[in-house]
Write a protein that binds this DNA or RNA. Structure first.
Length: 462
DNA sequence: TTCGTTGAAAAGACGCTCAT
DNA sequence: ATGAGCGTCTTTTCAACGAA
């Protein structure tokens, strides 16, 4: 976005960090409101513009609060907790809005958010179709990540003109059986005809074209490259990507045991690919946008796992993911304090995987009767109980409410809760919320300082 | 050239011990 | 009781080799 006008002293600005609950409404800072709006434009609607769209968004203002229409604006721009929005007053209650991510950098939108026919600046209502498109966009993005695979280049695979295709990738894209013609393509669009073949052993290979592609693109032994499946039709195209193997999405399959001990391994390829190498605190955001603070630990081999104790189990329960089921998490922010968001539950784990897990459970713990007989504690947190808990948690979710429900793990106990228990839970809830707010405040202060520094530098440049 | 086999390495799961 | 750290065992993956 070209922000020349951002530098203009004639345009008044304010910025707002997006905190939990921001989706419903947004408060204009009192000082800004009293100086520029109060007594002049009260009760009017404000018009919001962004560089991401040619559309003007009309939002109702109740007092200093943006209400009706704000949610649509948020959804259309995929604004999230910890983002920042900078409002630039262009006069006559028109604001230009710039969205900044948690890194304090401007959020880049791939293309204009609204680009269909019927787009007029005066159009206010966001259509369901556009909301669906936003969701579809998000889905496509995740699919794109799932349609990528990384491969290391070796002297052997170059000399044999043959390279292994990761099993899960081949399976996911229906390439794990028989022979398939494919096209290998580099970033410039140059292509090489090739084939995908599978073996009795289950290994799947790309045969042919590999040597030429490596030669043409100066790939040599020890290099690593990422391919993206562009079309999974009759002739799939594998395009060489410049990115080296990172994916924002990670699929996890908590076992009953991992839920019990509160420990969940993260694939090394994912952690390394995203630069997650330091132990520390991580934040998981569940499907209700409730935050869960857990720990990221590293073992002596560099393997990483989430350690959350009961919180891990409760987090999975909050997302209706039980032992043996899979969920996908999206890495929103890496660094020293990574932030993950629950992305989706994967409904049907493969039978082989499930069978394998059962086999392991039996091998390692003969007394663990997961198939029948006395269920384990984790099994008690099954769908029925989860459903009841969910019903009880209707309304504004709070981390404490989830935590306490997770800790209960026993329906009878839930029903027998005394007034004292409720008071204790409410107290816990308040304390937790306060802790979250204080943490946010500390982070906000840091971010605010960074932002101000940036503005000062920009002003110097101007 | 194709394809089966093998062995090493990596990853995942689990459990034990110790500290708090 | 819970959390943290670490060791060990099992499973999976894949490069490399060699026979047909």
């Amino acid at each position: 976005m070209a922000n020349a006008s951002l530098l203009s002293p004639t345009n008044k600005h304010f910025f707002k960090p997006l905190l939990p609950g921001f989706q419903r409404n947004l408060n204009i800072p009192v000082k800004f409101f009293s100086e520029h709006i109060e007594g002049k434009h009260e009760g009017k609607t404000v018009k919001l513009r962004t560089d991401a769209s040619k559309r003007t968004w009309e939002v109702k203002m109740d007092g200093n609060r943006l209400t009706e229409g704000w949610k649509e604006f948020v959804e259309a721009h995929d604004l999230r907790i910890r983002d920042f929005v900078v409002f630039r007053h262009e006069g006559d209650m028109v604001f230009h809005v710039t969205a900044l991510g948690p890194s304090c950098c401007e959020i880049q939108y791939p293309q204009s958010i609204s680009h269909e026919e019927g787009e007029e600046s005066g159009e206010i209502e966001i259509s369901e179709r556009e909301v669906e498109e936003n969701l579809q966009k998000e889905y496509d993005q995740s699919s794109a990540d799932l349609n990528c695979f990384s491969q290391s280049v070796t002297h052997s695979n170059i000399s044999n003109d043959l390279v292994t295709l990761p099993r899960d990738f081949a399976k996911r894209n229906g390439l794990d059986k028989g022979m398939h013609e494919i096209v290998l393509m580099n970033e410039e669009g140059k292509s090489w005809e090739s084939e995908v073949r599978s073996r009795m052993s289950g290994q799947v290979f790309i045969v042919g074209g590999w040597k030429s592609l490596c030669s043409e693109n100066k790939l040599k032994g020890g290099d690593s490259c990422t391919f993206k499946l562009l079309q999974n039709a009759k002739t799939p195209v594998f395009q060489l990507c410049s990115r080296i193997g990172e994916s924002r999405f990670v699929k996890l399959t908590p076992t009953l045991n991992s839920l019990e001990i509160g420990k969940q391994h993260l694939p090394v390829s994912f952690t390394k690919g995203n630069g997650l190498i330091h132990p520390g605190e991580i934040i998981l955001v569940d499907k209700d946008r409730v935050e869960w603070s857990m720990k990221l630990q590293v073992d002596n081999r560099g393997g990483m796992h989430i350690f959350g104790g009961n919180d891990w189990k409760s987090f999975c329960a909050a997302n209706e993911v039980g032992g043996g089921e899979s969920l996908t998490l999206e890495l929103i922010r890496g660094g020293l304090s990574p932030l993950f968001k629950f992305f989706s539950k994967i409904e049907q784990p493969s039978f082989e995987a499930e069978d394998r897990r059962h086999k392991r459970a039996r091998v390692h713990n003969g007394s663990q009767e997961t198939d029948k007989g006395e269920p384990s504690r984790a099994t008690k947190m099954g769908p029925e109980l989860e459903k009841r808990e969910k019903t009880a948690e209707k309304g504004e979710p709070s981390r404490a409410s989830n935590k306490s429900s997770g800790k209960q793990g026993n329906l009878q106990k839930t029903q027998a809760c005394s007034v004292t228990d409720h008071v204790a839970k409410v107290k816990e809830s308040v304390v937790d919320t306060l802790t979250s707010i204080r943490r946010f405040q500390a982070e906000l202060e840091t971010m605010e300082q960074k932002l101000e520094d940036s503005l000062q530098e920009i002003n110097k440049l101007s």
